[in-house]
Design a protein around this nucleic acid. Structure first.
Lengths: 338, 338
DNA sequence: TTGAAAGCGCTAACAG
DNA sequence: CTGTTAGCGCTTTCAA
């Protein structure tokens, strides 16, 4: 009733462990007759090679860690599916880890991944530190980092940069062409790198479209629906009230949408709302949400692919950089001003 | 630049590997002076014991698989967080696997988990087969199964049963007391066990509350928003149109809600809607969604705890059964008839 | 075309 | 209180 080992197979087939190993890995020519004996024994005993034993020798575990902020953030599921799609095809398994936006917890998670000798880690949490990445790379664990920068990062990790400027500029241009001049931004927590990036892209886009950035209200939100609601309260007290708002993610945009409707506003006439992420829900609510889309599933696939590339190249793998663009998606929550 | 092993530490500290091992695992008394020498060497070299090597001996990997249908189904994220919460506390790492509702893929995923010698697997995909569970348990991998039954299951796995009857009966009683007599059900795909269970609980609840179950319209949906929309189309063509509908999950309930509003119905006056799951969104939309809540995070915690218990007990672990109740949550999407 | 033996990094008898 | 030795289950020289 104990685990069937390569030894059992060898005995049953009347050959050496070496031969069994070679048959299974097709790593040298074996007489057809013995080959079949071995395969039969494998079949009869239901033998499954131990990946653990294999890993001890090969220094590869065919596992990777995926570090995210929080699965319940709807940004992540599609990314995860993308990662899994390519991982599955290469027989890689994925350890999912939620940092809960906690740097210290993130570091612990990375350490436990390193201890388990994962072949690589995908850093996709928005709470990041260079220390976390170092913890991995200094222990021969490859790293791919999404949407975070540090001057010392590129020496040790591959990176995926999200070009928020493209989509945000399209959105702002659209709004400005529709007559909007009072455009507000609801940002994420400004201690997060990605929140800063989005805010700056917003301000730059205003400038490029001839709107004074200094005038633009910036409200800090929590990236959740509730944050959008609260932000609307503030917007609603402003005089004049902005005619359009670009939120740092879709959840907050929906919060604004719903709070505005509850406050008796007529949408989108009284307020144009733009989200960011293009979560599933964005197209399903009514009015449907205009938003800045990022190719989440694609990001997951690219990230895992980059990681596999690094793993294949081994120790001296070169770090690569990829940028993915964002795109404005016009739906019903935006309209010509007035 | 190679991996630091226990050997390096032993050399540096001028002791044997055994002593290093014992110091690190606190598995026998060691002279304070040598202990410190060892710890200093560990520190200086940045030594991290290889879990892989450990696992080869201990037959434990401190890893578990979590098999779900699809992360983008909002039922799962909270469950995952629950699982991770207790896993993290015990230094377990979780392999996340999406079956995509595909039995064959599910089986492959289980096999790869078994090959990686996970200590256990949490079966939470709604597409299940006994074969999948057997694949695990026959290879000494413990199994906990959520919301699925099979006559041969209890001999090999622990189970968590969701008592849908409690919550659904509360919901139906509420509707009936509010005067509803034409109550429809939008089920999930009826090839799924859990869809059958919910449907049967619905019919039984009608009966218990004096409503003829044969009359009740049952529409099969896809568990997604779109399925709710389509179901509403059908409901809307019925004469008389049902005054209330209980959906098998919140997404479809929201689909009904939004489709009904788009069709010009006044909600909840013209149609009462009840969901199931109590996803985050349910309380955030307006009208907010009355729903049948299940303690998702708790389910995740319980499941992982059950698994850990089995792992601790080892080979002859007894299988346990747990049932969790559901509860009706009254919000704004239901109202007295007429 | 095949096997014996060494060893991956660690733990655990068994001795001293 | 500490070290020697024999493995865990596999791969891989090296030799036949």
């Amino acid at each position: 009733m104990n685990r069937v080992t390569i030894r059992d197979v060898a005995n049953r087939a009347g050959v050496s462990k070496t031969t069994v190993s070679h048959v299974l890995n097709q790593t040298r020519v074996v007489d057809e007759a013995t080959r079949e004996k071995v395969l039969r024994a494998v079949e009869e005993l239901g033998y499954r090679p131990s990946q653990v034993a294999r890993s001890l020798i090969s220094k590869r575990t065919k596992t990777a860690g995926l570090l995210i902020s929080d699965v319940s953030n709807p940004f992540y599921p599609d990314v995860i599916l993308g990662v899994e799609e390519v991982a599955f095809a290469e027989d890689y398994s994925i350890f999912l880890c939620n940092t809960n936006y906690d740097l210290e917890r993130g570091l612990k998670l990375v350490q436990s991944l390193v201890d388990r000798s994962v072949d690589g880690i995908l850093f996709m949490s928005s709470s990041m530190s260079l220390q976390m990445v170092r913890e991995a790379t200094e222990n021969q664990v490859h790293a791919v980092v999404l949407d975070w920068e540090d001057s010392n990062l590129h020496d040790i990790a591959s990176t995926i940069t999200i070009n928020f400027e493209s989509g945000i500029q399209q959105a702002i241009r659209h709004l400005v062409e529709a007559g909007h001049r009072h455009i507000a931004h609801i940002s994420g927590p400004l201690n997060l790198w990605t929140a800063q990036v989005r805010k700056n892209a917003f301000l730059k886009a205003l400038e490029l479209n001839g709107v004074e950035p200094q005038q633009a209200p910036i409200i800090e939100g929590d990236l959740r629906i509730e944050g959008g609601r609260k932000a609307f309260e503030q917007l609603n007290r402003m005089t004049p009230r902005p005619t359009a708002v670009v939120a740092a993610n879709d959840l907050m945009a929906l919060g604004v949408l719903w709070a505005a409707r509850n406050a008796g506003l007529d949408l989108p006439q009284d307020l144009s709302v733009v989200g960011l992420d293009d979560i599933d829900l964005a197209s399903k609510v009514s009015p449907s949400l205009s938003t800045i889309a990022l190719p989440r599933r694609e990001i997951g696939k690219i990230a895992m692919q980059m990681l596999l590339d690094m793993i294949r190249e081994g120790k001296e793998a070169k770090r690569s950089r990829v940028t993915v663009d964002t795109t404005f998606v016009l739906r019903q929550s935006t309209q010509r001003v007035g």
